[in-house]
Design a protein around this nucleic acid. Structure first.
Lengths: 338, 338
DNA sequence: TTGTATGCGTTATCAG
DNA sequence: CTGATAACGCATACAA
């Protein structure tokens, strides 16, 4: 490995001079600067970030941990975070926890040992608390995305899950639906809790009864095994006229299962869900959704994180951004009235 | 920051003993081992990977650089790579070059300065050559994904693009299509070149004429501005009865544009493409595609990379894996015969 | 404008 | 079984 000493020797200067040329600090004669630069080229020198970070105590690297790299919500969010990071001269590394606490723990380890400057994280759920406490303990700035975690105060970007769920149910009710089921994420995830709350409130406001057995809670992430989900659908009696899905992944899986039963959407059963389908909304935009501003989640979250990093001490109070969700009416809901 | 010296002091041992406990090397009495471990717990010690890498000259971190985090092909591939890395005890970091050579250069910098142990990379195209030469020069093992780069010999996982394109055209021809256009990725991307070759060969084999103006080359990545693509569609005269898209992104964009013109698929125009839609194939599987084994791209590529890393010296010849693509016939092609 | 000494946190080597 | 010392590659503080 070529070090500053190697190039210093070849350029007949001290290592410090090389270091100064690299970082453009101090005053150096144009002549030696040119010479050093030439030697660096010749020897294909690449600074060692490890060594540099060790002395500087900072990496200029930020980390984004998402829970499902397969979900357009998160990939779009990632693009937003990436853009904001790049704009501010930071590098961004990605991790994918796969809605799995153990994998998240693995990434926490990388984050901690690798001493990144800050973390943007969509936690897998409430059990992520210890992970966040670790970050706090080690003084690593972080911003939460999409999900609150009870027990920790911090900067956060949220969607208006309750209101969104309410809109979804209202939309169904307005078309005359009375039997509305809910497939949702785990109750250990704040957004799932809020969506359920919105669902329940909206039922009440529309004068519809709440049936516990019409609510099914599972993971927001894709399942390798759909039998449980399918069993729940089988258990529904009577079959609801509409289903609300807690996110796009669940919607897609449920639609697949329904079709396997020969049910057509929306003729036989209606469905609506949280989150849009990214580019794929384009090709067959038939599902009515509450679309979140995924890109903004990432972009604004990253902004907050960088603010926090750059103003370390005079930080100011924790900030909370709540992004509105927008109802996009398409054609997955059957009109039952008239 | 808590260092091994801090915990050494508190545990009344030397730093070396602490290091040995951490790494489970050398012989240490159970008693001191236990004591050290307890102190580490108490002080919330986290090893500094920077310092460690500096002396060990390795990170146990691998890097995966994809070109479009928004594309299910790459996200599925990522899952495969991740699984293989984890299984072998490596951590995996992701980067997204966005089909952009400059962004790729940025990640090359991170990769080089951060001294990861190996890289799995889907290059943006032939111009990526200098980047790969950098890796080679700095002795960083890498495996190419999905795209060849003329001028560099290395391990690689490819799809059978030519054969896939041929299948797509054959499928159209077998349904009676004679005017078949192609929207493709840039000719500086090997997979795009092979797909075009397959398209042209298949036309010839089916006795169909080749019209240059029916082929449009652009980026495989999503466009922020669709006017050029739209202009090409306008320029088509006569309108082809079918379009082959070089990948799923292009297919989606073209379908959007066609629909804006009031054209229905497949009634007014047929379309087929490379790559499936991941989970979204599930909800509206109407597009006939040649599906690639995305997960295997990542999994097998990662295996090759780790092999290469662990057998540094007695490496063996470069390996090339060609994954077959499978035609999945759905309902985006109109039957023109009979 | 340039150079010397020192330390960042860890591990390898060699000594005890 | 344990410890002292040097080294990894770089930048800060201070000298010259």
């Amino acid at each position: 490995m070529v070090t500053i000493y190697d190039i210093a020797a070849k350029a007949n200067v001290s290592a410090m001079t090389v270091s100064r040329v690299i970082n453009n600090t101090g005053r150096i004669s144009e002549k030696t600067k040119a010479k050093v630069k030439k030697v660096m080229e010749e020897m294909n020198y690449v600074p060692n970030q490890m060594a540099r970070s060790l002395v500087l105590q900072q990496t200029r690297i930020l980390f984004l941990l998402i829970t499902d790299i397969t979900n357009p919500f998160y990939t779009t969010l990632s693009r937003g975070a990436e853009d904001a990071a790049t704009k501010n001269g930071y590098r961004l590394l990605f991790g994918n926890s796969d809605e799995n606490l153990e994998k998240e723990a693995g990434y926490m380890n990388t984050i901690l040992t690798t001493r990144v400057d800050g973390v943007l994280i969509a936690p897998t759920g409430d059990p992520s608390l210890p992970h966040l406490e670790q970050l706090r303990l080690h003084n690593i700035p972080f911003v939460l995305l999409d999900r609150e975690v009870p027990g920790i105060e911090c900067d956060i970007v949220l969607g208006d899950s309750k209101e969104g769920a309410r809109q979804l149910v209202d939309q169904l009710a307005s078309q005359g639906h009375q039997h509305i089921a809910l497939v949702n994420g785990s109750s250990s995830v704040s957004s799932a809790r809020m969506r359920r709350l919105g669902y329940e409130e909206a039922l009440k406001l529309n004068g519809l009864p709440l049936h516990e057995e019409r609510v099914f809670e599972t993971s927001f992430g894709p399942r390798s095994d759909l039998t449980e989900l399918d069993a729940w659908i089988s258990s529904l009696d009577p079959m609801p006229s509409a289903i609300v899905a807690g996110n796009n992944v669940l919607a897609v899986e449920v639609i697949g299962l329904l079709r396997k039963r020969g049910l057509r959407i929306p003729d036989d059963i209606s469905i609506v869900c949280f989150d849009d389908f990214g580019p794929y909304s384009e090709i067959d935009p038939f599902i009515t959704v509450v679309a979140q501003q995924a890109y903004q989640f990432g972009y604004m979250g990253m902004q907050m994180l960088i603010d926090r990093i750059q103003n370390r001490e005079d930080a100011g109070p924790w900030k909370k951004i709540v992004l509105p969700a927008e109802l996009v009416v398409r054609s997955s809901v059957k009109r039952l009235l008239d």
